[in-house]
């Protein structure tokens, strides 16, 4: 295993096609400094994100998972992100009950124009997760 200082966490970010995916794009175009830790998964709506996708990301080796979507009221499909919110609250509790640090799961509403917000959000989470170390659910042999 690589030296702890060099260890770069793997962060899976689920991004909504209509907003936060654009936000990630904007962040890149605006050349905001971002760590190499994020893997973006584009979904058509944050409401598509089943809690099991989040768990699967952890089981496959993610150290943190970000759920991102449009600001409440701005959903392309009227109310998808409200459903996301319900599930997220629920997931948060499950994480605690399971003993996974709550810092490994985040929800954020990011619009397509908020590139800076996306970048700083990712930076913040990366710093936090670096402090926590690798996820206990990470399979053996995956770094």
């Amino acid at each position: 295993m690589a030296d702890r200082k060099e260890w770069e966490p793997k962060i899976v970010a689920f991004c909504c096609n209509w907003c936060s995916y654009g936000g990630a794009d904007t962040a890149g175009m605006g050349r905001f400094q971002q760590p190499a830790s994020v893997r973006v998964v584009r979904v058509m709506c944050s409401g598509r994100i089943d809690p099991l996708h989040v768990f699967n990301a952890f089981l496959e080796g993610a150290d943190a998972v970000l759920v991102t979507g449009c600001h409440l009221g701005d959903c392309h499909y009227v109310n998808g992100n409200y459903k996301t919110e319900v599930r997220y609250q629920f997931l948060e509790e499950l994480m605690i009950e399971m003993g996974l640090e709550p810092e490994r799961l985040h929800l954020s509403w990011i619009s397509a124009s908020e590139g800076e917000k996306f970048a700083s959000f990712v930076n913040k989470v990366t710093t936090e997760v670096k402090k926590l170390g690798p996820s206990p659910l990470k399979p053996e042999g995956v770094n």
Partner: peptide, 8 residues
């Protein structure tokens, strides 16, 4: 997996 998807 460290815990099976089934149980998750």
């Amino acid at each position: 997996y460290k815990m099976s998807m089934y149980h998750m």
